[in-house]
């Protein structure tokens, strides 16, 4: 039994997965309040599944809101510690890419973009073999050029469409924890993927 956690963006999302099947799932679009909702929500999942622990934990390590990334990571590491379970990481972009490519057999790839605020998107290209480019924070104008010829998904879709209305899009805004089941079995250890450095200036 695997526990998947995704709180990096607007969803407060968690799932119990066993043998590639969803045993129990919650996916709530709350935007704020992840630190309050996440653990009770996982409590509901465990109760629903009638289990007291999972054997592995996978958490979305970003990109997304710095706070959301940390809420997920803190919970994942604590569950891993308490259960003696390994804690692996996946990314927001790969979760959306996996979901879109699973649902759309006609697509060879997908360009995933999330609104990163400050006039930028977090964006990355995927094909059926996996990531087809590096994750970056870039202006929508630049992302729209990079997305040409690809189908766009993620919460940044509207920002790219505003630049180039001809882009093909899929309406899949937020990553979902249960889509961890679609990822490969080999996953890296969970480390936060902030993309941007902290806001801090050394005084003159």
């Amino acid at each position: 039994m695997e526990l998947a956690i995704e709180t990096a963006l607007h969803a407060c999302s968690a799932a119990l997965i066993d043998g590639g099947q969803i045993v129990a799932e919650r996916h709530e679009i709350i935007a704020r309040g992840h630190a309050e909702r996440l653990v009770p929500l996982i409590g509901e999942l465990l109760a629903e599944a009638g289990v007291s622990r999972a054997d592995a934990v996978t958490v979305d390590v970003g990109p997304g809101s710095f706070t959301g990334i940390r809420v997920g990571l803190a919970a994942a590491k604590a569950f891993g510690l308490a259960w003696g379970a390994p804690v692996a990481g996946c990314t927001s972009t790969e979760l959306v890419a996996a979901a879109v490519l699973a649902a759309r057999a006609d697509l060879d790839g997908v360009y995933v973009a999330f609104d990163a605020s400050r006039g930028e998107v977090y964006a990355q290209r995927f094909d059926r073999a996996g990531a087809a480019g590096d994750l970056a924070a870039l202006p929508p104008e630049q992302a729209a050029v990079a997305a040409r010829g690809w189908t766009v998904a993620g919460s940044g879709t509207a920002l790219l469409s505003a630049v180039d209305a001809s882009l093909a899009v899929v309406d899949h805004r937020w990553p979902r924890a249960a889509d961890v089941r679609l990822l490969g079995a080999r996953r890296p250890a969970a480390r936060p993927l902030y993309v941007r450095p902290p806001d801090a200036k050394v005084p003159a």
Partner: peptide, 20 residues
């Protein structure tokens, strides 16, 4: 500082749930 508070509190909550 709320970012740090959340890390400690969520960790505590998850441990509390996991270990009952």
């Amino acid at each position: 500082l709320i970012g740090g508070v959340m890390v400690g509190l969520v960790t505590g909550k998850a441990l509390a749930l996991a270990a009952d």
